[in-house]
């Protein structure tokens, strides 16, 4: 990336800072909104937290020395706004209800798409698991993510989508890293189960339990 030299925002004039901030915000808008939408599952809420995050970021822009850090900084503010709003609305109750509901979902703890799809003797040409992943549309994954209860969806959006470390996610959500690990594991299982169920519903795969290709190759 060119222009890597640090730029001290504090030393730029107001108009230039504003222009740079605006350019970055508008450039990142689809990613900010997409992330917010996956976190909230609601278009109005997603728009609100993006607007709130942009507003907060602008008001604290002097705290940021290096403009190269602006994207990551904006996403951190976005996540903080989401978590804060989530708590404010006392969704913890719904959160736990969701978690309980998740326990009722018919998905074994270690559901694996790979185990469903893999055929060990097809080594040298397109494999069913590759075809499955290649054929997935963004909307398939978004729908599957949206089907996850809050506590699982949020963790997977933080770690897999945004690249948070376990300890960063732990600090943001104020839960132990062990909880992040277990939620991630469950979230992945639920996500893969949801993708499988969608594929079956669309007639692209045989129904779960119809034998599939569960040949034990996934160990």
């Amino acid at each position: 990336m060119s222009g890597k030299a640090s730029r001290r925002i504090g030393k730029q004039d107001q108009a230039e800072r504003k222009q740079r901030f605006e350019e970055e915000v508008l450039r990142l808008m689809d990613r900010l909104y997409g992330t917010a939408l996956r976190l909230t599952r609601n278009t109005d809420d997603a728009e609100d937290i993006v607007a709130e995050a942009v507003s907060k970021a602008w008001s604290r822009l002097d705290e940021l020395d290096d403009l190269d850090c602006l994207p990551g900084w904006l996403f951190r503010i976005l996540n903080n706004v989401f978590v804060s709003e989530w708590r404010k609305r006392q969704t913890r109750q719904r959160y736990w209800e969701d978690a309980k509901q998740a326990g009722d979902i018919d998905a074994p703890e270690d559901f694996s798409l790979f185990q469903k799809l893999h055929q060990p003797f097809l080594l040298w040409w397109g494999t069913p698991e590759d075809a499955f992943v290649n054929d997935l549309l963004h909307e398939d994954i978004q729908r599957a993510l949206d089907s996850l209860p809050d506590e699982y969806r949020v963790v997977i959006v933080l770690v897999e989508v945004q690249g948070y470390t376990y300890s960063e996610a732990s600090r943001l959500l104020e839960v132990p890293t062990g909880t992040i690990r277990s939620r991630l594991s469950r979230a992945r299982s639920l996500l893969q189960k949801a993708l499988w169920t969608q594929a079956c519903a669309a007639g692209l795969r045989s129904e779960p339990g119809d034998s599939g290709h569960d040949n034990g190759a996934g160990k």
Binding site: L37, R38, L136, Q142, L145, I156, V161
Partner: peptide, 9 residues
């Protein structure tokens, strides 16, 4: 795929 789909709209 999850990263690409989950972080964009």
């Amino acid at each position: 795929k999850t990263e690409q789909a989950g972080g964009f709209a």
